[in-house]
Design a protein around this nucleic acid. Structure first.
Lengths: 156, 156
DNA sequence: CATGAAATCACACAATG
DNA sequence: CATTGTGTGATTTCATG
C-alpha cells in the first residue's frame, strides 16, 4: 500500500496563488493575476482544479477570540476508562462549544483536546461541569497556554 | 483593573454575518445580505466596524495537508533548561516550517508545539535533527495525533 | 493550459432618510 | 444605523490559440 490519498501535484504558479490566498482569502483574483503575471481566467481554472483535487478545503474568516472576551486557551489530556469507546466520548465533547480541537493520540492519554474559555473560572467550570461529567472520562491533565507565539498553516 | 482589551459588542446581525463568513470567507456580501434581509451596504458598514474593532483578524484559504502528503500531526511537550530564556528557543522553532503552533504553557513542560510532517520518519528527523538540536531544549515528549475528530473556531 | 472578450454581478462610496 | 444609487472593478464562462 503506497497511496494514502492521491497526492496533488502543484507547480510554482499554484504555489504562488495559494500563498496569496492563504494569507488573505478575499484577495481579488485579478490582483493576484497582475502580481504573478498571468490572466485572471487562468487563475480561476487553477483554483477550480485545486478545489476539485481536494487540496483546497474552503476558506475562513478568522475572528479574534480576545475581542469576544475569550482569553484563556488550554490543552487538556484526557484518560478514558479502558472499557470506554472513544467515539462516544468525542460525541459528548462535540457538544461543548469551548472544545475547539480533539485528537485521538498516542501516549499517556486517550485524547487531547484544546479548549477556549473566557477566563480561568470559566475553564474550571467547563472542566468540572462539562468534561468531567462525561461518562468514561476518568482523569484529566490541563495545560494552560500563557501565550501563543506561533500560529500558522503548512508552508507551501 | 477591569478592562483587558475592549470587548467588541456585537448584535445578532453581526453574529449572522460572522457565521457565514467564518464558514466561507469568499461568500459574496450581497448573498449574505439577501439571506439575512438587509442591504449589502449595511453589511459593509458592519464589517468595517468589526475589522476596526480588531474582532476580524483576516481570512485564510484552508489547504488540506493530506493532499500534499502531510499525514502525521503531533504535539510535542518541550522541557527547557532552567537557564534558557524562552524567546530564544521560540525564535529557533519559528525557523522550522513543520512547527505550526507554539504555546508557552503551565504544567510539566515549558512549551508545547504542534508539528505537521509527511510521515513518522519525517517526524523523527524533525525531532532529532531540528528540535533536539536547539540549545536549551533538554527533553521532549511526543504525542502523535492518530485522528482529529474536532476542528473548529469559537462559536459565535 | 493560457488568453481575451463579454455579460453578470459585487464592491465601495456617497448622500440621504 | 440602514437604504438607495452609481461608477468602477471583479468574477465567470466561453470560444479560441
Amino acid at each position: 500500500m503506497k497511496t494514502p490519498t492521491s497526492l496533488a501535484k502543484i507547480d510554482g504558479i499554484d504555489k504562488k496563488i495559494l500563498r496569496f490566498l492563504m494569507q488573505d482569502a478575499r484577495k481579488p483574483v485579478l490582483e493576484i493575476a497582475r502580481s504573478i503575471g498571468i490572466s485572471g481566467a487562468a487563475i480561476h481554472q487553477r483554483l477550480r482544479k485545486l478545489e476539485a483535487s481536494g487540496l483546497l478545503s474552503g476558506s475562513k474568516f478568522i475572528v479574534n477570540p480576545k475581542s469576544l472576551g475569550y482569553t484563556t486557551m488550554a490543552y487538556i489530556g484526557i484518560y478514558l476508562d479502558k472499557a470506554m469507546s472513544n467515539p462516544i466520548a468525542v460525541k459528548q465533547l462535540e457538544k461543548i462549544p469551548e472544545v475547539l480541537e480533539c485528537h485521538y493520540t498516542t501516549g499517556n492519554w486517550s485524547i487531547l483536546i484544546k479548549v477556549l474559555c473566557r477566563d480561568n473560572e470559566h475553564l474550571m467550570q467547563v472542566l468540572n461541569k462539562e468534561i468531567q461529567a462525561i461518562e468514561g472520562i476518568s482523569r484529566t491533565e490541563t495545560f494552560i497556554s500563557l501565550a501563543q507565539q506561533i500560529d500558522r498553516q503548512i508552508t507551501i
